[in-house]
Each structure stands twice: as C-alpha cells, then as structure tokens.
C-alpha cells in the first residue's frame, strides 16, 4: 500500500540533516511524533501521498516509543532508498527515546481517561 504514492512523495520531502533541537509535536491522525521541519504543506500532496507521509511518521514513532507497529515497515524501508536525505531520517529520530516513550504513554493514558469520562456522542 502507498508504494506508488511514496515514489512521488519522495521528491517533495524536505531534506536534511536537521539542526532542529526542539521536541517533536504529536499528530492525532497518524498517531505519531512529527518534528517541525518535517511538516509539509498537505495542499501540495495527493491524498495518497499524504497517507504515505502519515505511514512514515507512524512507523518511525513505533521505533521511537518501542510500541511495536510493523504495518508500514516495508514502506519505511523503501523510503530509506527513495529519499535517503529526508530530514525525517536525521540521526536520533528513529531510535528509542525514553523521554518520547514516556510522553507517548501519557498521551495515550490521557486519551483513555477522557474517553472513559465520556464525550458526547
């Protein structure tokens, strides 16, 4: 899934390496951490390309948090070949981080608690 879209997305990805030192933000739709310099104007992407983008962020977050999600591993591997200079591959962004893992656990816990308190349907 998204192999074709990844091929065209690869040419649009911002290149690195990054000098950004700040913490990433959390994107709800992809359930992933995203660094500011990776944010791409979604209006320039097709729906499929945007989907591929979200998959890359999702898979990488599974590496960063240690919460396994292998759904997009193949796409990730392909991206390392098609877009090796993507800023998202900056050293340190695809390895386990206790700090981010903890932040992720807190986000998930917060979401569960709010869900249990009940949102309007």
């Amino acid at each position: 899934m998204f192999e074709t879209e990844l091929a065209t997305l690869a040419g649009k990805l911002p290149r690195g390496p990054s000098r950004v030192a700040e913490e990433p933000v959390y994107d709800l739709i992809s359930d992933a951490f995203v660094w500011n310099d990776e944010l791409i104007d979604f209006q320039t992407l097709s729906q499929g390309e945007a989907g591929a983008m979200r998959c890359l962020w999702r898979y990488r977050t599974s590496l960063v948090t240690g919460v396994q999600d292998g759904r997009f591993k193949e796409l990730w591997t392909r991206a390392t070949v098609l877009a090796p200079s993507w800023v998202g591959f900056t050293e340190g962004r695809d390895v386990y981080s206790e700090n981010l893992a903890q932040k992720y656990r807190e986000l998930k816990s917060k979401g569960r608690n709010k869900g249990q308190r009940g949102a309007k349907g």
């Binding site: 739709i29 992809s30 979604f42 729906q47 979200r54 759904r71």
Partner: peptide
C-alpha cells in the same frame, strides 16, 4: 475529509461510529 487515518484507535472509533449510524 480525514484523509488516510493510520491511528488505529481513531480509525476503529470512527469505523464504529460509521457502522452504528450514530450521529455526531
């Protein structure tokens, strides 16, 4: 239009809502 939702929990929640026909 959500676009592709790769957040599994969110997707499951939206799917349940769609299948139940509940309004939001």
């Amino acid at each position: 239009n959500t676009g592709h939702v790769v957040n599994e929990q969110l997707a499951a929640s939206l799917m349940a809502r769609a299948q139940s026909g509940a309004t939001m």
